[in-house]
């Protein structure tokens, strides 16, 4: 599907209170245009809950529910089984952040994937706990400054690299795993369309630059998302039953230095830190593409 062919219908409407330049509403709005009316949405605790689901100003035009933080996988399992029992054709979607996916929610997510529940799980990944004020998560990249990994005199930001969550989900051998970015919108829409048609557990992982948390100019969100893909910091692929069926390779791989430029969270980077991050990217590149960059 092309952007031009997207339905006019809106299921996540304007008037929500996301920060300027936030990618999450772009993800959700476009995704919902494809998923359509017969969809039930769950969000755990995250920015999306607050900016789209605050009573009485609800941005959702489809049934929407929230229970807690760590249980997206099990909450959507319950709803989906109820619809199955009642023979209602409803797409059940859970939309969690990286904290709710990589960290506190990984157990319920893994359980739902292992049971091959008939649901779509979306992770919008802004690489830290943004809703609570930019604390590190298992998704935060190496060296990044967050409020719990402040670059100090002794420790220069986060010491560990980003966990590869999509690969963990691929290891569950579920019907569909896709990594996506709104900078590559045609690919994004195609993957949502494909996920909608598949039965069983579908995991969509979308890169979601956060101007507030990453400290960049809100007009640059899409540009930064594109640079993440071009540098190899974020890789677009899709896998069916654990096997990668399609992987996007940037025409020209840019150095990570170019990606981190303009993001305040990396401002304190020394040449050695840049080198460490580049090494991580190159290793990931080799693993995913089967060749040296």
């Amino acid at each position: 599907m092309n952007l031009n062919d997207l339905p006019e219908d809106e299921y996540f409407t304007s008037g929500h209170t996301a920060c300027p330049g936030c990618v999450a509403p772009i993800i959700v709005r476009n995704m919902m245009k494809i998923l359509g009316k017969n969809t039930v949405v769950y969000t755990p605790a995250n920015c999306l809950l607050v900016f789209g689901g605050t009573y009485p100003y609800i941005a959702w035009k489809v049934p929407y529910f929230h229970e807690a933080f760590e249980n997206t996988g099990s909450s959507i399992s319950g709803a989906a089984r109820a619809f199955k029992k009642k023979r209602k054709d409803v797409t059940v979607v859970g939309i969690a952040g990286d904290g709710g996916t990589y960290d506190i929610g990984i157990q319920a997510l893994s359980g739902a994937a292992e049971r091959n529940e008939d649901v779509i799980y979306v992770c919008y990944d802004n690489e830290a706990y943004m809703n609570t004020g930019i604390q590190r998560s298992g998704s935060t990249p190496y060296g990044a400054s967050t409020t719990t990994t402040p670059p100090g005199k002794k420790i220069p930001g986060k010491l560990e690299h980003k966990k590869d969550m999509a690969e963990i989900m691929r290891a569950h051998e579920v019907p569909y795993v896709a990594t996506m970015s709104v900078s590559h919108i045609a690919d994004f829409l195609r993957k949502v369309e494909k996920a909608k048609k598949i039965k069983g557990f579908r995991y969509l992982h979308v890169f979601s630059p956060c101007p507030t948390g990453w400290r960049f100019d809100p007009s640059k969100s899409i540009e930064i998302a594109r640079k993440a893909v071009d540098s190899g910091m974020w890789t677009l692929y899709e896998a069916e039953y654990g096997e990668i069926m399609d992987i996007y390779k940037p025409k020209k791989k840019i150095p990570v230095e170019e990606y981190i430029k303009g993001q305040g969270r990396f401002r304190h980077f020394t040449p050695e830190m840049i080198e460490e991050l580049q090494k991580w990217v190159d290793k990931k590149w080799e693993r995913l593409y089967g060749e040296k960059p």
Binding site: L49, V50, G53, I58, W60, K61, P63, Y64, F65, H66
Partner: peptide, 8 residues
């Protein structure tokens, strides 16, 4: 459609 369990 209705919202159940909103931020309140």
């Amino acid at each position: 459609p209705m919202a159940i369990g909103t931020f309140t």
